[in-house]
Design a protein around this nucleic acid. Structure first.
Length: 777
DNA sequence: GCAAGGTC
């Protein structure tokens, strides 16, 4: 007879097995699932890792037809739970048969408890063995031994709380998504799904709120009085204490009083040393925020790379809430590894004193903060991980780890109060005295702002005083980092799922990210607007909060599981009836937008007619690249490749004389015929793109035309008959050949506009000989 | 084809 242990994931199973056995572990496989065998206290133990949830809720098959089942029916239909990872189910049965004790050892949180209960429910089909729970807050040796020496009862309330969340999330998501999607399809032909969910919708709501603030913004005028003071060694700026002055009369009055003053006095000077502490250790949310802010990477991508770095043993587990190191955390072995390569000087300086971490206050009792496990060079990372930016992420994590252990950065901040008569101006200066942790952290640099050396009571010259009118500016677009902060603050999603909610919204076409900022798309804006008018609670974080509060009561034993389902369902039904009573407005708003967007996208990507079936060809862009495909897919599989790099511009007025489907311009570089290839490889290039003739060749019966070799940064006029005659052209500025011809020689006129904004564009005859003679004459 | 939560 054996003790059987279930952990949340394979990695944890392996580690726990090692700790419990003291090293003597045998690994085998049951239907592809790893099992670790060992002896503990003279008994056989078998430890198996699950893969997170291995069961999931869904509606029975007869409710799967969207057209036949009224979405409203889903609200009164209980979803059923199935095994979604069959091989894990079989392995559990296989182990449980011979067990005389079962131990659940998943992560110590609500979902972990629930995952344990999934294994328990499967095991209990074949086993009557008692089920215990090992509760540990880290995978350290002491903690694991303590947990397994002090087994407790599984917490059914905790597991059922997660169960209620799953059911309510699915009910709401499925009913609302089907209802909105089907309602819109009554009016407009679209294959797209308009999804709604308790996390994705409030996430989009944050972006919508910001967009509303931007669209509703009314700019106001204000006036700002600034002065430039000057001492014998340098000038410095000051701003009037009144700041941004809303009333023009007030600003004018102050300005009139002092505008002719030539001397000011340093009324007060204060110098303060300030320090900026290093950042806290990284938990998942902070990691994702900083990766977006510093590296411009999407949370989804960052987490994917972190996962790979973790699996390859470069960094610790990337999904953690904790931003403080445990008291017995061993920094030294890691730091010693970092004493080579580009981090050496920082690691050595940390090792030369006491190692002190600047800890945060969050402790999820799960995993340590994200930190490098071992030193790696750029080549090490690139050899192991086939994802671009993997090095950037590793380097950032390594630098953050080191920065956290380094001393604060010290600054000297100087504040001057400068009196012009009795009006006070403020000047601030800041000088970095000791870079501290900033040395290893190039992502946050602070520039010095220097003030000249002056003393209190000293006079300085007033060089200039200005009174300028400005306008208040609208709020900026939300950045992805700010969005993550809002989600975290309002409990939308978890450390592991926040990126996926952002990705869902992008996939649905609700918003997009441009660089670091998030922009709402019309479909997203209209959907949020319509929901905001009918079921406002959906667009706000409140909906998640309401469900969370319900299930927390289940976890605390204050509410029965069934009662929470009834209450939750009632809440969802209320929202559903609000939504359906506003169906007409909702559909007209959405249908219009979707039609507009579909037409716009179609037009933008239209390439031409398909030679196989006559339908439209269009350009398709995916994560993997871009190509031209037929809108008749999958019936018609006609497709063509496109060049991988360079912006594509479809040239609608051009026709390929060799029969290519269309001609596109690739960047500013060359032309490409769809289905044929680059035009510069084609013998008919001259026919499709006839040279721009500017005039007859003075040496033969050919014509002079523009030759522009962008790669060599040179341009000149050459002869179509290649007689060897050429003429030079100005090399700088944008050159356009005009329609007009020169009155004197009949050659075409050209215009040259130089980059310098102050310079006017020049127009002259393309014929250098003619242009020169006219300038002399 | 719907959600969100784990993890590979």
């Amino acid at each position: 007879m054996t003790t059987v242990v279930f952990t949340e994931k394979n990695k944890a199973a392996a580690q726990i097995a090692n700790i419990l056995a003291g090293g003597n572990v045998r690994c085998s496989s049951i239907g592809g699932v790893a099992v670790y065998d060992l002896k503990r206290n003279g008994k056989d133990w078998r430890i198996m890792g699950l893969a997170g949830h291995i069961m999931g809720y869904d509606y029975p098959a007869e409710f799967n037809n969207w057209r036949e089942v009224d979405p409203k029916v889903l609200l009164d239909t209980p979803p059923v739970k199935n095994i979604t990872r069959a091989q894990f189910g079989s392995a559990i049965i296989n182990l449980a048969k011979d067990a005389d004790e079962l131990i659940l050892a998943c992560d110590f949180d609500r979902e972990g408890e629930n995952i344990g209960f999934e294994a328990k429910s499967i095991a209990e089909k074949v086993s009557k063995a008692p089920v215990k729970r090992a509760r540990f807050s880290s995978l350290s040796k002491n903690e694991i031994n303590r947990a397994f020496d002090n087994l407790v009862e599984p917490d059914e309330n905790m597991a059922m709380a997660a169960e209620a969340r799953q059911i309510l999330d699915l009910k709401m998501g499925a009913a609302f998504t089907r209802y909105v999607t089907l309602s819109v399809r009554e009016r407009v032909r679209t294959k797209g799904v308009l999804s709604i969910g308790p996390c994705q919708t409030p996430t989009c709501g944050f972006v919508y709120d910001r967009e509303r603030a931007i669209r509703d913004f009314k700019s106001k005028d204000f006036w700002k009085i600034e002065a430039i003071f000057s001492t014998h060694d340098s000038d410095f700026k000051g701003q009037h204490r009144g700041g941004n002055i809303a009333e023009q009369e007030k600003a004018d009055a102050i300005f009139a009083k002092i505008k002719d003053c030539k001397v000011a006095t340093i009324a007060k000077k204060s110098v303060k040393e300030t320090s900026t502490a290093p950042p806290y250790p990284l938990n998942t949310t902070e990691f994702l925020k900083r990766a977006s802010k510093f590296l411009g990477m999407s949370p989804e991508k960052s987490l994917e790379i972190a996962e790979q770095l973790y699996l390859s043993g470069f960094i610790s587990y990337p999904r953690t809430e904790t931003n403080k190191y445990a008291d017995d955390f061993e920094f030294k072995p890691i730091l010693v590894g970092f004493t080579k390569g580009e981090y050496a000087e920082y690691a050595l300086s940390i090792l030369s004193g006491d190692i002190v971490s600047k800890n945060g206050k969050k402790d999820g009792h799960d995993h340590p903060p994200i930190h490098p496990i071992r030193y790696a060079s750029k080549t090490d990372i690139e050899k192991t991980i086939n994802l671009s930016n993997a090095w950037k992420i590793y380097d950032f994590i390594a630098r953050h780890f080191l920065a956290n252990l380094m001393p604060p950065a010290l600054f000297e901040k100087t504040r001057l109060e400068v009196a012009v008569e009795d009006e006070i101006f403020d000047s601030m200066g800041s000088v970095q005295k000791d870079a501290g942790w900033l040395r290893v952290y190039p992502f946050e640099t602070k520039n010095d702002k220097l003030l000249p050396l002056v003393d209190e009571g000293q006079n300085v010259a007033v060089k200039k005083i200005t009174n300028t009118k400005s306008k208040t500016s609208p709020p900026k677009k939300l950045t992805e980092a700010e969005l993550l902060t809002l989600m975290d603050k309002h409990g939308i999603g978890t450390k592991a799922t926040a990126p996926s909610h952002i990705a869902t919204n992008k996939k649905r076409g609700y918003f997009e990210t441009k660089g670091k900022s998030v922009s709402i798309l019309e479909t997203g804006f209209t959907l949020m607007d319509a929901l905001n008018n009918s079921v406002p609670i959906l667009v706000k974080p409140d909906i998640r909060g309401r469900i969370e509060a319900l299930i927390q009561e289940v976890e605390d034993g204050k509410k029965e599981f069934e009662a929470s389902l009834v209450e939750g369902t009632t809440l969802i039904k209320e929202m559903y009836s609000q939504l359906s009573s506003n169906k007409n407005e909702l559909v007209s708003q959405l249908a219009g937008t979707i039609q507009d967007e579909a037409v716009a996208v179609d037009k933008k990507n239209y390439i031409g007619e398909c030679s196989e079936c006559g339908r439209a060809l269009h350009m398709i862009t995916t994560d993997k690249g871009r190509f031209v495909g037929c809108t008749g897919y999958p019936q018609c599989k006609n497709s063509y490749s496109l060049p991988k790099a360079g912006a594509i511009n479809i040239l609608r007025s051009r026709k390929c004389k060799k029969g290519g489907a269309a001609v596109v311009k690739v960047g500013n570089k060359y032309h490409w015929a769809v289905g044929i290839g680059p035009c510069f490889n084609c013998e008919m290039e001259k026919e499709c793109f006839p040279p721009e003739i500017v005039g007859p060749c003075p040496k033969c019966d050919g014509d002079m035309f523009l030759i522009d070799i962008k790669s060599k940064n040179t341009r000149f006029l050459g002869c179509t008959k290649r007689c060897g005659h050429s003429q030079s052209l100005p090399q700088n500025g944008r050159l356009t050949i005009l329609k007009q011809v020169c009155e004197k020689c009949g050659w075409r006129m050209i215009r040259v506009k130089e980059q310098d904004k102050d310079k006017e564009a020049r127009e002259f005859c393309a014929n250098r000989v003619c242009a020169q003679s006219s300038r002399q004459g």
